[in-house]
């Protein structure tokens, strides 16, 4: 893990806003770059494990009660590697390894039935309009507290939910050819997912389909919306670079919350790899304090 080599002045409050920004960028720059092998192996390895559960359970080699928690963990783990790709952290367009970026981005979210292009376009809108009640596609996860967040997540997945249709609405608002294509891919994904579930169910494998995909996906969506969306943006009332996201101390620790304790770093510098955000946070903390960020006990 990187450590900062930038020496901070004794009194940050004596610095002008521009000087503070220069210092902030100087520190942040040290944590960017390099190939995030951890996220690449995580994304592809996680998919391989999840895919292997199908033949193992359908052939009776692996009991469903063992496969179910593994599948749930797989779906929970499937989003973040794609998130690295969405921000071109693995490689940027024109780089030799851009294909790897797109491979991880496209493959890792298959268990979630979330097409990469939909995730990328809507996520970039989330960064652009964080906490904006009209324009942030993730504003529907805003909730009064943890239990309300879980209830809200379930409510947002109901067929008639407006918040549940937010990604589709965002793609429509964007109206670009890429957004139109993403909408079409989302439809193909959704129909394919349902066709696979229905086929498995009517051929005598309904429980396998339910415990390897359908139920794990619901549990994972609740978890992801809780830790990746609600918790780091709570209370979700402010906009602006230093106030739209926070750091927080999670009861399940940094691994249990998938690094989201340090999500404020991601919003300030989206190109810093996930696994570098804790070190970047500790190095930047005095600057964040000087900027009046919400650091909530971390």
């Amino acid at each position: 893990m990187n450590t900062s080599t930038v020496t901070l002045p004794d009194n940050l409050s004596a610095l002008s806003s521009q000087e503070l920004m220069r210092l902030e960028k100087q520190i942040a720059d040290q944590f960017m770059g390099g190939l995030p092998w951890g996220s690449i192996c995580w994304g592809l390895g996680n998919l391989v494990v999840w895919l292997s559960l199908w033949p193992l359970t359908l052939s009776g080699i692996l009991p469903l009660w063992i496969a179910f928690p593994i599948a749930t963990l797989n779906v929970m783990l499937s989003y973040l590697p794609s998130h690295e790709a969405q921000h071109r952290i693995i490689a940027q367009e024109g780089d030799k390894l851009f294909w790897l970026n797109e491979l991880v981005g496209n493959l890792s979210t298959i268990p979630m039935v979330l097409p990469y292009e939909v995730a990328r376009l809507t996520h970039l809108e989330h960064h652009k309009h964080t906490n904006d009640p009209e324009l942030d596609p993730d504003i529907g996860t805003k909730a009064k507290g943890p239990w309300h967040s879980i209830l809200n997540s379930i409510r947002n997945r109901q067929p008639g939910s407006k918040a549940g249709a937010a990604y589709g609405a965002t793609l429509q608002r964007l109206g670009t050819p890429a957004a139109e294509r993403a909408g079409l891919i989302a439809l193909v994904f959704q129909l394919s997912y349902l066709a696979i579930l229905f086929t498995l169910a009517w051929t005598g494998h309904a429980l396998v389909a339910a415990l390897i995909w359908w139920l794990p996906r619901h549990i994972a969506q609740t978890y992801i919306q809780f830790y990746l969306s609600w918790a780091p943006h709570h209370p979700g009332t402010e906009t602006g670079r230093y106030r739209n996201t926070r750091s927080f101390r999670s009861v399940v620790g940094n691994i249990g919350s998938m690094g989201m304790q340090f999500h404020i770093i991601h919003h300030l510098y989206p190109r810093i790899p996930l696994m570098q955000t804790p070190a970047a946070y500790w190095a930047l903390k005095p600057v964040l304090e000087a900027r009046g960020c919400q650091l909530d006990g971390l």
């Binding site: 349902l194 579930l197 229905f198 169910a201 309904a206 389909a209 339910a210």
Partner: peptide
């Protein structure tokens, strides 16, 4: 084609997935 299909998807899900799932749970 897709408009009515998506509108009635919860019903199709009930028949296409929940029905055989319920059957399997009852049998087991």
């Amino acid at each position: 084609i897709l408009g009515p299909l998506m509108k009635n998807m919860p019903f199709l899900f009930g028949i296409g997935f929940l029905a055989p799932l319920t059957k399997e749970v009852l049998v087991l």
